[in-house]
Write a protein that binds this DNA or RNA. Structure first.
Length: 273
DNA sequence: CGCCAGGACGCCC
DNA sequence: GGGCGTCATGGC
């Protein structure tokens, strides 16, 4: 990754980034593609830090109205720019299916998101589809002046007060999560550095957090790249391409590999969801 | 109408 | 321990 400053913007060169593939691939739900003169522009948030980013040309991006200091402190880390995805994909390509998946959508990166926001987002995700998950999170943030609620304020909600979310049976799970985190019963920062099995068990103490959601929180919200969420799509990949198990060589980055596979299998079978 | 979606829970055996 | 019905909501 290279960058330079141009007025109030930061120009980033990174061949291994595609905005559609990274910001709209089911790992984050608060980025919106907006009309613009650029080929592709997204606006969104990380916790409460807003950003608009456009694709200037292939592999070159404008981070709009961001100071260098702020870019280095927040967005460099968020987009995982310190990780070399070319090398990662090269190592994955030892496997035939992974090679195809990396070639199909080589601009996917694993975002380093906030653990609390991920916890809530992926509780909402259970037995749900991506457009509807986005809608629920939109309505949630709208109710908090466009930002994501902190655990403390969210813990004041009840399943009844959350009816405007139309999140169905998940509302009671959200309340339990908010109460556990705000009371300190669950300390996400501590879980992030626990041995993985211990971390899984700790997350699953929260109601509505099972194996799949725990794995998503670990991967997307705690950068535990060995975490491997298995949803209905990845189940199809595993049964179709890996009847003898997922290749062991990719174990430490199985979660990132999973993200390429997830995007690959979904876009083979559905036009656009 | 039925089926499905980045599933988990409660209950049964 | 595994199997199965149920849980809201909305798009197709």
């Amino acid at each position: 990754m290279d960058y330079c400053i141009k007025g109030n913007d930061i120009i980033v060169s990174e061949p291994d980034l595609d905005l559609d593939e990274t910001l709209d691939c089911g790992q984050a739900f608060r980025w919106k593609k907006i009309p613009s003169d650029y080929s592709c522009t997204y606006t969104g948030s990380f916790v409460n830090d807003c950003l608009t980013v456009s694709e200037l040309k292939k592999g070159e991006f404008i981070f709009h109205n961001v100071s260098e200091n702020y870019f280095l402190r927040k967005w460099l880390d968020y987009f995982d720019f310190n990780t070399n995805y070319s090398e990662l994909k090269k190592s994955f390509s030892e496997d035939e299916t992974l090679a195809k998946a990396c070639k199909f959508a080589g601009g996917i990166r694993l975002l380093r998101q906030d653990s609390w926001e991920c916890l809530i987002s992926f509780i909402i995700s259970q037995n749900n589809n991506i457009p509807r998950i986005k809608g629920i999170i939109d309505r949630l943030c709208e109710n908090y002046e466009g930002r994501f609620p902190e655990p403390e304020e969210f813990s004041a909600e009840t399943p009844d007060s959350l009816s405007y979310l139309r999140s169905g049976f998940r509302a009671k799970y959200l309340c339990d999560a908010a109460q556990r985190v705000s009371s300190g019963e669950t300390v996400l920062r501590d879980i992030a550095s626990m041995p993985i099995e211990e971390a899984r068990a700790e997350l699953k103490k929260i109601k509505g957090v099972g194996p799949k959601v725990a794995e998503c929180v670990l991967l997307f919200g705690m950068y535990r790249t060995e975490a491997f969420p298995v949803d209905v799509w990845i189940k199809r990949v595993l049964s179709e391409y890996y009847p003898n198990g997922f290749p062991a060589f990719a174990k430490d980055n199985a979660g990132i590999a999973q993200q390429y596979l997830f995007h690959y299998i979904r876009n083979l079978q559905t036009a656009n969801v």
